[in-house]
Design a binder for these strands. Sequence first.
DNA 1: ATCACTTGTGGGAGCGCTCCCACAGTACCT
DNA 2: AGGTACTGTGGGAGCGCTCCCACAAGTGAT
Lengths: 351, 351
Amino acid sequence: MAHGARGGRSGGRPTLEEVAARAGVGRGTVSRVINGSPRVSEATRAAVEAAVAELGYVPNTAARALAANRTDAIALVVPEPETRFFAEPYFSDMLRGVGAELTETEMQLLLIFAGNDRERRRLAQYLAAHRVDGVLLVSVHADDPLPDLLSQLEIPAVISGPRSASETLPSVDSDNYAGARQAVEHLLSRGRTRIAHITGRLDVYGAQRRVEGYRDALREAGHQVDETLIEPGDFTEEGGRRAMTALLERCPDLDAVFAGSDVTAAGARQVLREAGRRIPDDVSLVGYDDSAIARHMDPPLTSVRQPIQEMGRRMIDLLLTEIADRRPAATRGLDRRQVVLATELVERASS
Amino acid sequence: MAHGARGGRSGGRPTLEEVAARAGVGRGTVSRVINGSPRVSEATRAAVEAAVAELGYVPNTAARALAANRTDAIALVVPEPETRFFAEPYFSDMLRGVGAELTETEMQLLLIFAGNDRERRRLAQYLAAHRVDGVLLVSVHADDPLPDLLSQLEIPAVISGPRSASETLPSVDSDNYAGARQAVEHLLSRGRTRIAHITGRLDVYGAQRRVEGYRDALREAGHQVDETLIEPGDFTEEGGRRAMTALLERCPDLDAVFAGSDVTAAGARQVLREAGRRIPDDVSLVGYDDSAIARHMDPPLTSVRQPIQEMGRRMIDLLLTEIADRRPAATRGLDRRQVVLATELVERASS
DNA sequence: ATCACTTGTGGGAGCGCTCCCACAGTACCT
DNA sequence: AGGTACTGTGGGAGCGCTCCCACAAGTGAT
């Protein structure tokens, strides 16, 4: 194909220049209208908009990206295998919140899995090519190198769940400490005293905070913390089964379980049932997340609600601010960059 | 920021031109090396690759997209609400197959939901901007306008499941007719004679084909087809419950159920159990898809396996061919563009 | 009247790449 | 010897936009 014909002057997609000719204005003016600049008179704006409509003009994203050095895309990076993504409602809720907030904008969302080495290398390449303006990181473990890579590449990022108390990246999280306290205080109020805790992955900071909340709630109620009642889990159903099996063997007298996630609670419930323990008669069960499965369990599961969709929305807010506003960090209020949302105990029949 | 400094000649990302200077060759040569052209001598290629490595050069996607008029991205369009996407293993399996095939390439996959009007408008805008080189359409209903939009915009597309016997778009599907026959013949061989069928959405061509397979299998075995044993469903669990309830009321003497999907079978099983029918003693149950839930059901579900991941892979194959190879349709073999994969009956305890 | 702004506008330059033409060099025919 | 073909290479032109400078025209203070 001849070079000059590449764009197909006739029949191809209209360009900004053609819109300008049609509206009888210059290229710059059309650009200003398209990008909503206030420095355009009403009459001119109307003329340009008419031309855009008549020609069916749609801006060329690649040209814009090249000239403006931005992509209008952000990535939701899930450092987990796809299977976990689909198995755990946490992720789909998050995706929904993020998607909802993004429909208001021109931004495009990319879903990227980085569950194994191969995928991670691909992601690194992807980020190095600066194919996104910003990154949303969910479910990050304490020793994950991804955040460092991101700041090295100077790509704005927001993390769901800080990696530690001194997280430097902007983050959005629910109040894990208070949530755990709500769960334990509820169980205590039900007269339970031998309350076990199946934790989340302890390399996730939020899971540690929940353990702290669990401990403090017991202590403040005048109970001693029995360390044998704490069993590490990993947020998964299988992990819940494993932990519950170990707990039943070690502490057959337990009368309540506070699980690190609803999915974990489902695993625990199965083991409890097989062991002949009735819920809630013999053992009270409380989950975390208040995801869809909590309502559908038998009996319905009492759970600590995290506003996951809201968290997704707030992450987008933070990220878009971060992208728009690249002033030196000193002039930014750090206070606004660590968002913590309240949890709420949803009582159901399992406790 | 001053215009000339935009790219940041110092410290910014290296450009192709800088690589060329470093390797002591011209821009064209570097471009040829990057794009794997064979028209480069070994020595030159090595020199360029060294320069690329030293500089940490990564091509600028936007510039490439602008100059070459392609985006190196394809979209997986799901014309369903997100909730269905997460509830049905069909989609996640498909996504996995597609993703696997794509890791071999430089292509990027975008997941786009078009479950409501707002999302559909957004998608139309997106496609009009030609932000993807091609589209994968899954789960398309007979009257969906999306395929027409795509061909109007001249965007290559592949459809999973033709809309009719005379589908014009390239498609990949499993042999729904044969799959249904396998299921029914299996139930007949088990001595069942009152075999009900809960269909899929009948505006999906594949679901119609399964009904035909169901009918023909019965007829060829010398049975008359009792139309009251056929109840429309919609692939969902709730649909399965509804249909099963209707069937039990209308035909209490049924002794087998062939469901349009595993999820539908799960809904049917629940109703059967509540009605006191034992599986498989009183009623045999066969599903479709052989998704993960089939193995985890109680009792494990006999199901017609569709090679969904394989289907995803083949769709990518077709689409990449379609994108690479834009010769006039006449020179292309239409035969290669309608792929039908074999199904396989997986026998488990439910039948 | 002059100066200093402000508002609205046009268009040059440039983003980093791909495509293609031109051409040097070599190889193999007549 | 001349012709023809092919291989490998350099670099001009152009993709469609944004950014910014320049400048015309208007407004109000001096």
